[in-house]
Design a protein around this nucleic acid. Structure first.
Lengths: 208, 208
DNA sequence: CAATAACGAAACGTAGCGTATCGTAAATAA
DNA sequence: TTATTTACGATACGCTACGTTTCGTTATTG
């Protein structure tokens, strides 16, 4: 574990607050306030506009307190974000895998159209400039969702709804990739109609 | 034309060098040196690590000269990049649209695997923090390529290789989206095998 | 030769980063 | 109780890079 990010924000908190040692313990209220302030400010001014000093001011803590707990801005924002959003997508299980996928795609588009989409785009973009950030984002957002989707695809193959020779990884990318691409490039809107058309297009011809 | 970016870098150059006015003209050598230095430095230290002062030093010009010609870092890097890379993809025309697409997909993957891919990822990411940058990137990279691909798809529809009810925009996104997504997220490598598998998967079931 | 405009060098004000110092507050340990 | 340890907020600091301004110089037009 060489990442400068904690896997979960609690770890970082517990690590310091486990109270095995003497001395004043870290204030849990400050912890919460900092993360909340970070969330608010990312929503208000975006990642680029967010400053540690701003977070400190809004959270009512000293800048020092933040640097005592997080090594830098990226790590703070990441923790703030995932404390809120981490629970993965959640596919339905109607018995019809194609229908499950269709619903999930609509749900994802809807989610990415809101503030979550803004944050995801920001984190993904920031990953280009920060390797640890990229890795943490992959582990905590992308891979969790890909794994879930892959399982659904495998279920589809097992049930005979999807051809056996389809590579689940490629299919999952074919479904999700265009959505994230639109999210990032903004060349066309993320509409439910797009989700449907994309799902139909990708799934057509994959019958067993 | 409200963008702070010139559509083509020559415009910006000519605009000032058209020499209709009195006074010393802008030095074209400096222009070239600046763009070259910017290209070199982006490759060496990345967009985030690039500084205007660094470009000026390497180009052997004053910082002022750069600010006289470009309003900011983004705009300079964008011009530097597109002076080098702008010519769009170039589809083959074998008569078989599916084959044309397949070849194009392999070519794109190969290109994005190299330094161009690094630059594209950087520009796309930076677009999240800079609206003008995002728009310029869409106009000068994405839309040019999308338009070309859309035409090929339409040709495929006209020739009866692709179903008439397929939306060319959606199909183009289905092909390209996953590639750019992998480029940005890095969750899986951009291999020729992926290009082939993706193309097959997306095009299967779209027969007329 | 006068007017104009770009040139490089340098200094400037601003912003935000991440660090260091300090006196104070809250916990444990003797 | 008292000493020790650690976090706290405030403040100051050094640093980097931005984008601007000033200034004396150089090149071009008329």
């Amino acid at each position: 574990m060489s990442s400068k990010f904690s896997e979960k924000s609690e770890e970082l908190y517990d690590e310091a607050c486990d109270a095995k040692h003497a001395g004043r313990p870290r204030c849990p209220v400050a912890h919460r306030n900092i993360l909340q302030a970070a969330r608010d400010l990312v929503a208000e001014v975006g990642f680029a506009g967010l400053t540690i000093e701003g977070v400190a001011a809004r959270a009512g803590v000293g800048k020092t307190t933040i640097y005592r707990r997080w090594p830098n801005k990226s790590s703070l924002v990441l923790d703030a974000f995932f404390e809120d959003i981490s629970p993965p997508a959640g596919f339905a299980d109607t018995g019809n895998v194609r229908e499950d996928i269709r619903r999930q795609m609509r749900k994802l588009v809807k989610e990415l159209n809101g503030p979550t989409g803004c944050k995801i785009a920001t984190l993904l973009a920031n990953g280009q400039f920060d390797k640890d950030m990229a890795e943490a984002f992959r582990a905590r957002w992308i891979e969790q969702r890909r794994a879930e989707a892959r399982d659904v695809v495998k279920r589809g193959i097992a049930q005979g709804e999807i051809r056996r020779d389809v590579d689940p990884d490629v299919l999952v990318d074919a479904l999700y990739g265009p959505i994230y691409f639109r999210l990032l490039s903004g060349h066309a809107p993320l509409t439910p109609a797009f989700a449907d058309a994309l799902t139909d297009l990708v799934l057509s011809g994959l019958d067993d």
